[in-house]
Design a binder for these strands. Structure first.
Length: 98
DNA sequence: TTGGTGACTTATT
DNA sequence: TAATAAGCCACCA
């Protein structure tokens, strides 16, 4: 089985790192840009690989970060200029496309 | 090998 | 808008 390649992981990291402050992106976008077969893979990379990358700029398609990190990420994003409405981020406004 | 789990997405109700 | 179901891929015990 192909499993995932280091290159794919590195691509994901590069994409996340390329997201400017004040902008956010979704797992699906990263997965698509990195050529990953499923967005879940992106989540797996984040969970396993703890890097200095701004993971807080990566949110779900619903415009809402993960439940356990939501509070932290939302606060961090707010500090960067990403205003959340009712705990939800305006993807249409802050979504960063590659 | 099998089954359970997860920082997901989309579609349907 | 929220809740549920199914699909999806990789990791771990």
């Amino acid at each position: 089985m192909a499993a995932i390649t280091d290159e794919q992981v590195e691509t994901v990291r590069a994409l996340v790192a390329s997201v400017p402050s004040g902008a956010v992106t979704t797992y699906g976008d990263i997965a698509d840009a990195a050529g990953l077969p499923s967005p879940r893979i992106v989540a797996w990379i984040m969970r396993t690989d703890s890097s200095d990358l701004p993971w807080h700029r990566v949110i779900r398609a619903s415009g809402r970060p993960a439940p356990h990190l939501a509070t932290r990420q939302l606060e961090r994003l707010r500090a960067e200029g990403v205003l959340a409405r009712d705990g939800r981020i305006a993807l249409a406004e802050y979504r960063h496309t590659f």
